[in-house]
């Protein structure tokens, strides 16, 4: 049996008294590729921000490698690509791709493995962009730089919050192929998306969230007609109620 990396128990979160997440329970095991899907405003990003310690839940427990969030110190084991990564970057940003990639080592006081750095740079095709300023990169190139940065300390888990937003169809396809190859190399991936049609076959677990956790199971289970029907009926009912 694989090691449990993340365990979320009875997690609830509210913004100004209005409940956004209600009693969420799930686990991620080593080697999982979990896709969290759900409608806009369904609480996917809030869930990620809770498990990364940016938001404090009103109820429940979050355990990384069995340690509660307040006792967890090994943040370098997690690679994180935020939602709308690159939104803050503009033409004045002086950081080069090379400087950007070296930042995690400074945050967590770790040394950079030069040969692994080279490997990441080649994997993401960043070799010709190393001395480019971030402000001069296209959105797709920026996205690759963010993924590169999240991989630089050899994390055990990669967390991506709607990473393909803003990418064209071909870039999205290339991007998901890259995720597949990273997963095949043994990386555990937690991916948030609402582009269900883009979820590749390599996703082995799926969680559907819209305030509550409607479904949590394997890709195969998700693909069975009955489960899809159940999920989509709940999904659409709630989507409709938003309007």
């Amino acid at each position: 049996m694989n090691q449990t990396i993340l365990k979320v128990e009875h997690l609830s979160f509210a913004y100004d008294g209005s409940l956004v997440l209600n009693d969420i329970n799930f686990e991620i095991e080593q080697g999982d590729f979990l896709a969290i899907i759900g409608p806009n405003g369904g609480g996917k990003s809030t869930l990620i921000r809770c498990i990364l310690g940016f938001l404090k839940p009103i109820k429940g427990k979050i355990l990384w490698w069995g340690k509660e969030l307040k006792n967890f110190k090994e943040w370098y084991k997690l690679g994180y690509v935020p939602q709308r990564a690159g939104d803050l970057i503009d033409f004045l940003t002086p950081l080069t791709v090379k400087e950007f990639l070296s930042l995690p080592a400074k945050w967590y006081h770790k040394s950079l493995d030069k040969s692994y750095l080279e490997e990441v740079i080649h994997l993401l095709g960043l070799q010709n962009l190393l001395n480019q300023k971030l402000g001069k990169l296209s959105y797709g190139q920026l996205q690759r730089a963010y993924i590169g940065r999240s991989l630089i300390l050899k994390p055990e888990v990669l967390i991506l919050d709607e990473p393909s937003v803003g990418l064209d169809f071909f870039s999205q396809e290339r991007f998901y192929k890259l995720l597949e190859s990273l997963h095949q190399k043994g990386l555990t991936i937690l991916l948030i998306t609402h582009e269900t049609w883009l979820i590749t076959k390599s996703v082995n677990k799926i969680a559907c969230i819209n305030k509550n956790l409607f479904f949590h199971g394997t890709h195969e289970e998700f693909c069975t007609v009955s489960q899809q029907k159940d999920f989509y009926s709940d999904y659409h009912r709630i989507e409709h109620s938003h309007w």
Binding site: R49, L52, G53, F54, F72, K73, W75, Y76, L78, Y80, P82, A85, G86, L88, I89, T93, L95, E99, F100, L103, W107, Y108, L134
Partner: peptide
């Protein structure tokens, strides 16, 4: 300081 020009928040930082 420089991280805040590219990110709003970083896990554990």
């Amino acid at each position: 300081w420089i991280t805040q020009t590219t990110d709003h928040e970083i896990p554990g930082v």
